[in-house]
Amino acid sequence: MSVASYTSQRRVQIGTLGLVVLIPLIAVGIETSLFTYGFLNRSLAVASPIAIAAIGGLYAEKSGVFNIGLEGFMIFGALTAAVTMFGLGGSSPGQGYIWIALVASVLVTVILSAIFAVLLIRYKADQIVAGLAVWFIGLGFAPVIATLIWGRRSSGGLSSINNVVVPGLAEIPVIGPIFFDQSPLILLTFVFVAVSWLFLYRTQYGYWIQAAGENPEALDTAGIDVNRVRYAATIFSGAMAGLAGAVLLAHLGSFNASGDTTVDGRGWLGIVAYLFGNYNPIGAALAALLFGGLDMISVQLQTLGINLSSRIVNLVPYVIVVVVLTVWGKTQMPSSVGDPYESED
């Protein structure tokens, strides 16, 4: 009841909007064989890093820290993964190195986000400006490091991760291609979404995170150190953004530091996804999937001979965000977000 009531109101709204958008799309999709398994899998591949970053971000925000630096941490995560792969295996690293690269990305972003967390919590830095700074630093230093390592801004082709194929089961219709011939990282994303939901709503630490963002004094008087909870959540969010960047890289197989880099706004979409999913991990993951689908739809339309500028189609998530924020007004932002907390003693 409790969790359900926590989100049910929003779920109905999200569900309604989802249906309004999806039903005609699906109808058209089936009619024109727009939705193929390939399309679904490509959408999942786009969605998984967004979902991972989004869940990291929502943990931080639930605890009262607005981590607007997700995009920056994702850039560092992707860059670290590329550098690690290249360092270990040159331009054609083996599959094992990809996993090592994922771990390395998490470690590096843990360190970076720990520094970030100290600035925010101990030194009460402005969360929005500091978060933007992380993005600027990522945009600035990623090309620097790329140039130092590869002599140009792009890593060139590295390896991307292979699908896990379960022979036999992969032949099962519908479920087979989604679960038994799939990138292990996407499968892990499914697990991650479920676990992070469970952790947030069914463990004491989840309660503490929620209380830290809603009424830190209540948590403090319950004897829990608010800032410790916030440190944990903020570092987790940075690490998850780093992991998201690494997952993105493991699917793409190369890093490019020009312009907005390979990450290209996906960290921002992560923030948008959890707002859209109303701070619920599952909602955020579904929103990420919606964005993934939108991202892929222009490609899919082209294969059907419909030429829509991908440039315009790629704007759709951004437009949706503006519309959603407008229609629903305030999201249920935790009430103490952005407030540095000082215990009174």
């Binding site: 600035l119 030194y123 009460k124 830095a125 402005d126 400006v129 500091a130 933007l132 700074a133 992380v134 993005w135 600027f136 630093i137 990522g138 945009l139 600035g140 230093f141 990623a142 090309p143 620097v144 140039t147 130092l148 530091a257």
Partner: peptide, 20 residues
């Protein structure tokens, strides 16, 4: 690499955000 400057600008922003 000239982007070094952008990174430095990012650091300026970061520090400006934390006068404390």
């Amino acid at each position: 690499p000239a982007q070094m400057i952008d990174g430095i600008v990012g650091l300026v922003v970061l520090f400006v955000a934390a006068p404390e």
